[in-house]
């Protein structure tokens, strides 16, 4: 697909040029990189750790596997994968943003995680890896920031080995109205204030809240995965559907 330069896309609720979105997303993550982990704990009350554990357990990753932690940011998933795949395996932490990669690299080094982890600056839409090279690809809280999600899904499909699987952990649509309401209130009123207070960056967190709402719901993402070629696509709601884990295979 060629991108028409005048095409537009969403940046949160704003409609912007495709090119503009990429640099705006970059701006958000450059500005939150340093406080990212603290904010994650605060924003999710620590539950994001359980969501990530769930993802690891569902990945079926084994010693010796090659794993791509796409949009890996500060490397929470990479840290655990690195321990599971062991020295005979390999984990690649890929992110489009150099600040996030830098924070991730420093954090993992401090945790003593070296040897089987590589860091690559890459755009999910055009992955710089050979066809059929990974057993597992994860993208946690990353897909909603990607401009062309279909292209990213195709690119991920290409780099997966036959038998390999993709796990998408992402905010989704809560399955109850009440929860939806509380969650809306939280995301639009409290979250940006917290972002302002802790990270002195309310705007970035306003964007996060908006981008969460613009993200495809469970069924839509599932069919997008199927269109990209994934088989046995399924999803599992976590915390009432605030977050969903989608999984699909390449055969």
């Amino acid at each position: 697909m060629t991108i028409d330069k005048t095409e537009t896309t969403h940046f949160g609720y704003k409609t912007v040029n495709i090119e503009e979105k990429e640099s705006m997303v970059a701006g958000v993550f450059h500005s939150v990189a340093k406080q990212y982990d603290v904010m994650n704990d605060l924003m999710s009350f620590g539950v994001h750790r359980l969501w990530k554990r769930f993802t690891i357990d569902a990945s079926g990753v084994r010693p010796g596997n090659k794993v791509l932690d796409l949009a890996g940011g500060t490397g929470d998933l990479t840290a655990k994968f690195s321990k599971i795949v062991g020295q005979s395996g390999q984990v690649i932490l890929a992110d489009i943003n150099s600040s996030m990669l830098q924070v991730g690299r420093d954090k993992l080094r401090d945790l003593g995680i070296v040897g089987n982890v590589d860091y690559v600056q890459a755009n999910a839409q055009a992955l710089p890896f050979e066809d059929n090279s990974f057993d597992v690809v994860t993208i946690a809280f990353g897909l909603r920031n990607v401009t062309d999600k279909d292209e990213a899904l195709r690119s991920i499909y290409r780099v997966l080995k036959p038998g390999g699987r993709l796990l998408v952990l992402e905010f989704s649509k809560p399955d109850s109205e009440l929860l939806n309401k509380a969650y809306d209130f939280y995301s639009f009123n409290i979250l940006p204030k917290m972002g302002d207070f802790v990270a002195q960056d309310g705007e970035s967190y306003q964007y996060l809240a908006e981008s969460i709402r613009m993200h495809p719901d469970q069924e839509t993402l599932k069919s997008m995965m199927e269109t990209a070629g994934f088989e046995h696509a399924t999803y599992h709601n976590l915390t009432g559907g605030i977050v969903a884990l989608h999984k699909g295979y390449k055969f």
Binding site: R53, D57, G60, P63, I84, G112
Partner: peptide, 17 residues
């Protein structure tokens, strides 16, 4: 249970070889 130099990792799947 996965042993590391200074700590132990526990996951809920059957990854041990």
């Amino acid at each position: 249970f996965i042993a590391e130099q200074k700590s132990m990792l526990v996951v809920a799947n059957n990854t041990s070889e």
